[in-house]
Amino acid sequence: MNFFFHLEATPKPWSYNPSKWSQRICISCIAAIAVLIAVYMGFYQWRLIEYVWDPVFGDQSKQVLDSNVSHTMWKWFRIPDSIMGATAYLGDVIFALAGSTRRWQDRPWLVILFGIDVIPLGAVSAVLVFMQGAVVGSWCFLCLITAVISLGLIFLAYDEIWSCILFLRAVWRKSRSVRLLWDTFWGKASEIAYEAGESVIQQRKKRGN
């Protein structure tokens, strides 16, 4: 029996490897832009700078960053909400750069953690930003830019998470063992995990044929 294990394997249902470096570096660069914007707003909240650049809404950005909602979040997080946002975006950068080009199979925990950081947290923060007009009564241009970036990151990252979920589902279907699923999730190799990974790849090939 032949044994294959290609790092650049293409998992179901894509025609490319969602864990490839080019895609993950792209995600990191976009998230890094959001980090810089969020840190800039954080500098204003810390009063390290006195002015926030906003070519569209003018002083409304200051009103958003100095709002009661913002101060309440500062009390919850113990740091300005912009800095908390910057930390979350930095998490996107860190988790996007970590792992091999087959991490959807060899480190599912990393992909799922990346997914949690990008999808639910990103979606919630984007919704909160888009609601600021209704809640605070003002708009913040840079906040809206970061919200758009969050949505863009979700679009760029969901394919890898989906492949990882399909792989874990294949492990479950083959084993029906919670223990094995748990071990595979934490990156432990096994014959079933290998076969599940190959089936996720091979099914796509069959469809292509």
């Binding site: 790092l7 970590a98 792992g99 091999s100 087959r102 060899d106 990156g187 432990k188 190799a189």
Partner: peptide, 8 residues
């Protein structure tokens, strides 16, 4: 982290 996990 850029290599396959030790177990794999």
């Amino acid at each position: 982290s850029s290599q396959l996990s030790y177990s794999w």
